[in-house]
Simulated scan of single mutants.
Amino acid sequence: MPKAVILDGYGPPDVLTWTDVPLPEPGPGQVRLRVRAAGVSPTDLAIRSGHLKAFPLPPRAVLGFEAAGTVDALGPGVTGVAVGDEVAALLPHLGGYAEYALAPAWTPKPPGVSWVDAAALPSSAEAAAGVLNQLDVQPGGVLVLFGGGGAVGVIATQLAVSRAVSVVSVVRSATDAELARALGATPIETGADLVARVRAEGPVDAVFDAAGTGVLAAAVALTGDPDRVITLSDPHAGDFNVRLSAPTPDRAPGALAETMALLAEGRLRMRTRTTMPMPLAAEAHRRLESGAVHERIVLVAP
């Protein structure tokens, strides 16, 4: 039988177990992937811990919003792809931490893009492009980005700069500040008087919280309007009347294809990545939560 990392209830990383599961069958419009790699996102950790119950989960749920692999089977009505094709996919209903996953949409993986890079791109690309579309900052406007050194933040910075939006990137280290500057943003390190220091850069049109770590009070203070703030995963979004990011089919439908092409051409930078075997997903979550790993973790299937 195929295997997957099962989540049996909310809790610490130990609730994740590598176990046998039925082989999923693709429905209309879906393909089944033989997964080669799957990205681990901060949202995965928030869901698993129970801090983000806006994403209700069925029993024996499988986490993972993104994966890359080989098409293994086609559901009814699927065209334009064949068994054996190499693709990357955003999985809006999760399922990436598995040997086999079902995908409702996919993008071809160029030969020059590794499985690890392809698996680390889909959810970050969709979130970055999707939130930028929702915030709709016009050319010449100013976007404040919390978590600019993270996987989503790095891509969001590049997309915003390409749209002639000025990005003020709030970062946690000199290394992240250097990266933000290299990507075309103005870095400001977090700390005392943050709101005043950001305001000194000029009026703020919108705030993108890609950090999800208790910055919403500052974010609302900077805009004066919670409608101009979107957070990826802060569970207290409702307390501040701030929108919680959620992927929808029409939010950024071309984001993965666009960024995959840029990646293949060497024109897109991504956050540094490290790999771990998929059966060790619980350890991957543990390391991320402890701060022992600062890179993006990608799980590699057996």
Rank of each mutant, 00 (worst) to 15 (best):
A118K: 09
V131F: 05
A73S: 14
S169F: 06
S173K: 12
T43I: 07
P110F: 08
V168K: 02
G80D: 03
P139W: 01
V83F: 11
L143Q: 12
L94R: 01
R36W: 11
S49T: 11
A68R: 10
E66C: 00
R48S: 01
A103D: 12
S166Q: 15
E86M: 14
A68H: 06
L90A: 12
S123N: 12
A54N: 10
G69N: 02
Y97F: 12
D85W: 13
F146I: 05
P42K: 00
L121F: 02
D44W: 01
F65V: 01
D85F: 14
V62Y: 02
W115R: 15
P122K: 04
L63V: 03
V40N: 05
A156Y: 11
V116M: 09
V40D: 03
A164Y: 14
I47A: 04
V154A: 09
A129E: 14
L63R: 02
V35L: 09
L135N: 00
A129C: 10
T79K: 07
N133C: 00
A129K: 09
G149W: 09
D85P: 06
V113M: 12
L102M: 08
S114N: 11
S162E: 14
S114A: 15
V137C: 08
A174L: 13
L74V: 15
L52H: 03
A120Q: 12
T79W: 00
Q134E: 14
G141H: 09
A151E: 03
E126I: 15
P110I: 15
V152H: 07
S169D: 14
V81C: 08
L159W: 09
A151P: 03
S114F: 13
G96Q: 03
A127W: 03
L90D: 01
T157A: 07
I47N: 02
G80Q: 02
L91I: 00
S169V: 10
L57H: 10
P58S: 15
V167C: 09
Q138W: 14
A61S: 06
T157N: 09
V137I: 13
A46F: 13
D85Q: 07
D44Q: 03
P110N: 14
G141I: 04
V40Q: 01
P108S: 14
H51R: 15
L135D: 04
L132S: 08
P76E: 15
L74A: 05
L57D: 04
A174Q: 15
S41I: 00
D44G: 02
D136T: 06
E99N: 02
V161I: 14
T43V: 15
